[in-house]
């Protein structure tokens, strides 16, 4: 064993790190990850379900990233550039406080509930549901609409309170804000 062995090891370790772009332990951890995931994937193959599994696994990521996200982000942008948006009032009177979040929040919460429970709400699994529970899914659409209605009503009430506060505290009118970049959304 030569004396410069540790140096050589350290040198090749450093070379590996440079070529790889991170500490080789990073690679080791990822190899362990792929080994376990690969083994589990092997079980999927053994179960004879790998085609459907792969389609749904990749499909879930693709549908979220390239369909669900763009849809809700675009809807959010559209809601903020809505054509019926009030023009700025003549100077001297204060602008109305932004209503976007009072629209955004109930729409998003109602949409999330629909996203999770659409098979029940849209009665897509009626046969299975009836076989399983001896009941039908007829109440769910009404319940979802009820929750949605309550969310919008609560939001409208909150906006009304906000408006009242705004009016009583708006004297004298604050100076108009300097023109800034167009409003965008957290979704954008």
């Amino acid at each position: 064993m030569s004396d410069d062995m540790p140096f050589r090891i350290r040198g090749s370790y450093r070379r590996l790190a440079t070529h790889y772009g991170a500490d080789p332990l990073h690679l080791l951890a990822l190899l362990a990850c792929f080994a376990l995931a690969g083994y589990a994937a092997g079980r999927v193959v053994a179960a004879g379900i790998w085609v459907g599994f792969l389609v749904w696994f990749v499909g879930a990521a693709v549908i979220h990233d390239l369909l669900l996200y763009p849809l809700y982000a675009l809807a959010d942008v559209a809601a903020q550039r809505r054509p019926w948006r009030r023009r700025r009032r003549p100077s001297g009177t204060s602008a109305w406080p932004s209503s976007i979040n009072y629209l955004r929040v109930p729409v998003a919460l109602s949409g999330l509930l629909l996203l999770i429970w659409f098979p029940l709400i849209l009665r897509l699994a009626e046969g299975n549901y009836h076989r399983s529970t001896a009941l039908d899914t007829s109440p769910y659409l009404g319940r979802w609409l009820l929750v949605t209605g309550v969310l919008f009503a609560a939001s409208a009430l909150a906006y009304a309170i906000r408006l009242r506060h705004h009016k009583t505290s708006a004297e004298p009118p604050p100076p108009l804000p300097a023109p800034r970049a167009p409003r965008s959304s957290p979704s954008g």
Binding site: A40, V44, A47, G52, F53, Y129
Partner: peptide, 30 residues
């Protein structure tokens, strides 16, 4: 989908959810 008895996936729920969990957990830990 499974808790809503909406069995649209082309596989049995038990193996898919179990093996999918292990694949996810491998990536989650690193």
């Amino acid at each position: 989908l499974n808790i809503q008895l909406f069995y649209v996936f082309p596989f049995s729920f038990y193996p898919a959810h179990l093996y999918g969990a292990w694949i996810f957990l491998a990536a989650f830990v690193v």
